[in-house]
Amino acid sequence: MNPAAAGAKVVTLKQQPAPVEAHATLRGVTRIFQLPKSTLHALGPIDLDLAKGEFFSVVGPSGCGKSTLLDILAGLSAPQAGTAHFEGKPVNGVPDGVGVVFQEDASFPWLNVRDNVAFGLRRAGVDPAEIQRRVDYAIGFMGLKDFAASFPAQLSGGMRQRVCIARTLVMQPRLILLDEPFGALDQQTRLLMGDELLRLWRETSATVLLITHALDEAAMLSDRVGVMSTRPGTFIDFVETGWERDRDSRVVSTPHFGDITARLWEKLRVEALKIMSAGKS
């Protein structure tokens, strides 16, 4: 709860530090899209090491391939060149122990909240008593207790995203990938959802990779932020925030938060300007 390391210096590194224990890695990852008349070099080459238990965020201008990066790590799409590894094994299809929260509402409209949350456990053939226990916990943790029997259509956008997070949480993933999960929500809801996410991260001690376009979100939540360039997206900067593990949205009032955000914007502004002057966005 103490706004950590107030006044600490923002550590900026051209090279990312060698992680203590690499939980997931990308090496030379490149993605090229074949269009009818041309090829689009969307991403890479990307090198990235995620330390076990670290909260890592990716910020970048729109269209820089942030989501593609996540898809590759999740095994949803394959790179043209380079490799992705999770827990020492090459990623080939969605690996066991990886959970993903999408930006779009991915709750199933035909299932109520409880069945939505239990869906993955039932597919995995988990024992019913255990399902009951874990679903109860996740629903309680995400503050959905009063809505367990509701259908998604009866809930607000923020609540539906909680359902999706709870649904990921029950699977007890060791790596959680979030693709702009709060992009469709209003600013206040986003800050509060950020707190929930931090709580979840501390509770599960999972490794988290968050894709976002919101600088404040990245600065407030992460241990480390990677800044991406315009297409083809590569990492141009890594910023260590130096927050303590026990933090929440109130860090936004500290000068240190301002320093990090300023640092991120300094790098990103150049990239965003490139896109704007090219008339792409």
Partner: peptide, 22 residues
């Protein structure tokens, strides 16, 4: 929605299960 098919992939569901349950 594309995201629902992606979700089925995350749960590592087979083609038939995806068709039937999603």
């Amino acid at each position: 929605p594309r995201v629902l098919r992606k979700t089925a992939q995350i749960y590592r569901m087979s083609r038939a299960k995806t068709a039937l349950l999603v």
